[in-house]
Design a binder for these strands. Sequence first.
DNA 1: CGAGCCGTTGAGGGGATTCAAGCTCAGTGG
DNA 2: CCACTGAGCTTGAATCCCCTCAACGGCTCG
Lengths: 244, 244
Amino acid sequence: MTLNPTVTAQAVQPPGRDSQAGACASCALRERSLFGALAPATLLRLHAEIARPHLKTEGRLYARGDPGTAAYTVRTGIVRLQRLTPAGERRIVRLAGPGDLIGLEALLGQPYADEAVACTAAQLCRLPRQAVADLLQLDAGLAPELMRRWQGALDQAAVWSTDLACGTARQRVLKLLETLLCLADGCDEIWLPRREDMGAMLGLTVETASRVISRLRREGVLRPLPQRRAQLDALALAAALSAP
Amino acid sequence: MTLNPTVTAQAVQPPGRDSQAGACASCALRERSLFGALAPATLLRLHAEIARPHLKTEGRLYARGDPGTAAYTVRTGIVRLQRLTPAGERRIVRLAGPGDLIGLEALLGQPYADEAVACTAAQLCRLPRQAVADLLQLDAGLAPELMRRWQGALDQAAVWSTDLACGTARQRVLKLLETLLCLADGCDEIWLPRREDMGAMLGLTVETASRVISRLRREGVLRPLPQRRAQLDALALAAALSAP
DNA sequence: CGAGCCGTTGAGGGGATTCAAGCTCAGTGG
DNA sequence: CCACTGAGCTTGAATCCCCTCAACGGCTCG
């Protein structure tokens, strides 16, 4: 089974106008970003090397096994990391939202461990391996920050397996909605995955995911909107989560 | 629910005779260990600071939330990392065997994210946060090696969730046995977890784990031995894994 | 010897899967 | 314009796997 076969080529674009316009120093994400702690001078130097590719919905950033040339910071949108189970089924291992760093293994010269695909339209920062290696020499503060990112991903993986892989289908879907609400900063409108994607995240079948979502819709927890979006009733969600 | 409530105090022992006798340079694990790439001189310096605590079966190394004072290398035995699900159930997130590094978050000054408990008797190397920090200044080769460890743990977490969290109870148990066979280097004798631990690893109940193991015993895949050990028929295991 | 833990096995019920059919909706081309 | 198509979502019915509840035996240990 091949996944998103032909999108890779157009996915990564050369740095455009906007990458010149806004420096990393003024990036809205700077506080949450990898380089938030760097000195302004090094930031400027870095900025020249950073491309800011865009991804369309379902566009693939890289495939598992691709030579790892760069890590990426997600600036906007949601990117999923997925791989195949031994049985040949797709399994989504992680969701990355704004501020998250993906493809860290590339910084070690390793091939990508997962396939990265955009769930929504997404804007990224591309951090070439060599540029990061150079920065590591210049600024001693970067290495610990990088390690913190690794630890964060590790911790998120543990939470994923304790929260989203346990309990009934209803509980898992509710937990997922909670997660998606965190990824959609601000309002109560979230990205609502395709049922098949929900299944791949939660270890459920398409039909089960559909049944649960339909029931939540009837209960008023959820209101599907066009374009794979949905409006969440945060209170009803919390109530459903606390109820057995 | 409290887990292994009172074992912590005796778990970590001061460096004993054997920590003086064998230097890190002659450690059997050196190739696989964190410091394998270090220069002999730095190794000597490091060695003075490293304690080598022992853990008895079911002895706790640290609890979730404890201030992270040191990371640990597992020299012998198997250590499990577990945490509680939101529903209050225990979930085993990872197994660490010889050569594995656990408690990495301590190196960042963070509290431990999981509870670490010995599945079998275990020997460890204790790597104090400060000692590692000092070494990071001295040897530039250590930082990437450390990052590789983080990446390895992350990758293992992904494999765990794709391999051990999918499929029928039988398939999951078989995958677990395969994993345990890798952790028991050499012979065909493995550590066979308590049924409740199997459940906590695979997301199954005690009874289901027991039923599956009993059937595998009747089929000749497995032969339980005293002291929570078992003899595996590697061929039969492989056959059972490849069969649907 | 009783208490407690662990493993095993059985019976019953429930939740998820499987198989199947029908639905909406967007895109296509006659 | 509209049938045609295919992808995705929904729903139903039957099945199956796992969970729950329960009972029992082996074993260690106080």
